[in-house]
Design a protein around this nucleic acid. Sequence first.
DNA 1: ATCCTCGCTTC
DNA 2: TTCGGAC
DNA 3: GTCCGAAGAAGCGAGGAT
Length: 572
Amino acid sequence: MTDSASFAALALALADVAALSGRHDKADRLGVLFAELDDADLRRAARWAAGRVFSLSDQRTVSVGFAALLRATMAATGAEEDDLRAALVRLGDPGDVTAGAIEALVPPVESDLTIEEAEGFFEQVAETSGSTAKTALIAGMLARVTPEEARFLVKLLAGELRIGMGEGGVVSALSRLYGRKGATVRRAVMLTGDVGEAAVLARRDRLAEAHLTLFHPITFMLASPAEAKGERTLAEEVARQVPPPVAVEDKFDGIRAQAHVAADPGDEDLHGVPEAGARVALFSRTLDAIERAFPDLVRPLAAFAEAAPRGVILDGEIVPLGPQGEVVPFQALQKRLGRKTASEELQRDVPVAFVAYDVLAIDGEPTLDASFRERQALLDRFDWTGPLRRSVVAEVHDLDTLDALFDAARARGNEGLMVKALDSPYKPGRRGRDWLKIKKALATLDVVVTAVERGHGGRRKLLSDFTFAVRASESDGTLLNVGKAYSGLTDAELAALTEWFEEHTLQTFAHGKVRTVEPEVVVEVAFDNVQVSKRHKSGYALRFPRIVRLREDKPAAEIDTLATVAALAGDA
DNA sequence: ATCCTCGCTTC
DNA sequence: TTCGGAC
DNA sequence: GTCCGAAGAAGCGAGGAT
């Protein structure tokens, strides 16, 4: 009935890939597996190796959390919860925990699971609602497979494959196996939005057939960060990457979105919602359809179908507005985030605008290969009023004006600046030097570490995650937490600190995963913003906190106070 | 009916 | 989003 | 340069617990 290969062979290949270290070695090992599979299995294996259990356009999710996976493992093996939790702390990966438990507690089985059946199993898990039912289903499967198969079933379910490949690795495997150019394979992935589809096209030498389709999202072009560094000024740093003249526009702090609009072809299978004779779709960065949450944008966008009946795809940002139509901080948007719909009341409470800054297709024709300058001209065709705005682009010859432009952008309520190469094409899914995002670091804070947590995966041996605090005031030394961070220190520094924290632990929680420590280690933290918080005792939290350096020279009695944090938040 | 935890997405 | 690390 | 993995705060919503 089916020629689907055994799931055991896939598990073996993934284990090999995980164990190999070189990028090429990993890609070639994956290629050996790909070569043995038929088209249907190739499609599945390519998606899974890239960390996607379903294709991007599929709205279903199978992701199951640690807790449910541990319960399923308990049911399948009879293991004790405490033992499994302890093993999870030790091994850091639920797949390894499950494999270990089966190995130790369950008599060996003969497994004949195929890749096709594994996919059917994932679909069943996705369609089952309720964690109890999901857990029972997973437990049933775990009882009939080998430890190695269970390891990868669980990893895939948890969405934590971590074989060091990702989509880029699969592209490289395909390009090496079938002798296609990496860029060609990558382009097919961008346009189809599905590595599995691209894999089959690569095998058949039909990559050229991948094309951009209205109401099918494509991955967004991304920007690289740029800032003044050491001796180099901002102007010098930017000039190094994009030679002037450059395009400069505000960097908007909202939700990245791709709008698809066309006269309604009446095809029910298309994404998007019908609205006044037009069809409108909005996609988020993960290519999820979000138009239902923004009816206040869908209505006006539908009017664009008159100017471009055969369709247009716009790239832009959804930003929150204040009562006067001015741009307000991102935090206001949180209330509209992750919602399925938006009530009239919410639309009034937190109004939004869509600020368009690029065109990916117009009149049904892709414009990706047109220059940035040419694409900008195409935006002239539309009427930018109400909640539909257009980013103002300046052509800048003298980069020394960047600092002034930056301050002006901030004064308009925006995050900073974008600098773009005028002659660059739109590169879907790429983070290149054609687009630069300019930010400026705020002042830093000196804080003391009050608690530490064990890391995951490669960091599971380190106490890598710090909770830190400021003093209540100059006279009151009470410590108030303001956030957590790990990022910024090297593994070597973390290793040394781990030892110190272990020797100066006050209390441990959660099987040794979390521990409070003597408040002695002072670190300097940087961040992008200070926001009001319910989570931390100080009442504030830092946005994107990262550790700049250890302040071994500074005693805990001299760290910053709550007043400093409040001032940075704008609460004088 | 209400509360809480988890999973997930946004940045 | 951020960062460090590996190649 | 580029990719990958390990991390942060906030809020929504589904489901299970009370």
